[in-house]
Amino acid sequence: MRAASTFFYRRPYWYVALLLVPPLLWFGTVYLGSLFALLAQSFYRIDDFTAQIVREPTLDTYRQLVTQPANVDIVLRTVSMAICVTIACAIIALPIAIYMARYASGRMKAFFYVGVMLPMWTSYLVKIYAWRLLLAKEGIIAWCFGKLGLTGLLETLLEAPGIGGPSLSSSYLGMFIVFVYMWLPFMILPMAAALERVPGSLLQASADLGARPSQTFRNVMLPLAVPGIAAGSVFTFSLTMGDYIIPSVVGAPGYFIGMMVYVQQGTAGNIPLAAAFSVVPIVLIFVYLGIARRFGAFDAL
């Protein structure tokens, strides 16, 4: 063993290379290979008459993607939902992150961290299922509105054009709530991590220089939370862009990118179109990463 150890002491690169071989083989073939296969499929097309995949490079599928208004609608719908969800998550996460990172200490801090981690890791499907129960026509939320005598308000909300529907569980509003719920921990944790790193003396200095608590919040705390928000928004944006389970379990009939990929590869059997559709979130996410980077998202990860 000592001889082997000395061998690698003299050739440190060999040691790294030897360690890297198995994971690189796996990621190179299974993962990167699949991504290339995906990209290749998006340049194939489906023959309209035989419904067979034609394996010749063509841009037909992409042309179909960008020229059909229905497809463009799907992309726009998904992106708007992703943006709305990201903003809502940031707003709801901010007080939680500030409290757990700056004010809570000892047991309370541990309580909050566990309290955020547990729902994050609770089964994804079960959480969606829970929201189906909550949002159902005779479910808890409707019951609460009834008890508070606000059934009228709920009905007005559901009649609103664009976001409404026959019940919360079949409206964009309901879908939005579920998305926000699902990705909230992914916003809170990076935000709290960014705020944890702020030295306490900065807040004291601000107070010392005469800032009221609200001014300290606006001028010191909030700007320092920005890298955390940017990092968290990468998750909320990317997760919303790619999800297809939530829109198919909760929400209105309009399609989302993920659902389109799922349906095209499944019942429609159109893998090239599914592949082309899945390239859209990849491109959008890289654009988003570029923007988030400017706000220091990668320093906060």
Binding site: V30, Y31, S34, L35, A37, L38, A40, Q41, S238, L239, M241, G242, D243, Y244, G258, V261, Y262, Q265, I271, A274, A275, S278, P281, I282, I285
Partner: peptide, 12 residues
């Protein structure tokens, strides 16, 4: 990247 990308890529 979203899980769906990994999924559809493996399928492809």
């Amino acid at each position: 990247l979203p899980g769906i990308i990994t999924g559809i890529a493996l399928l492809a």
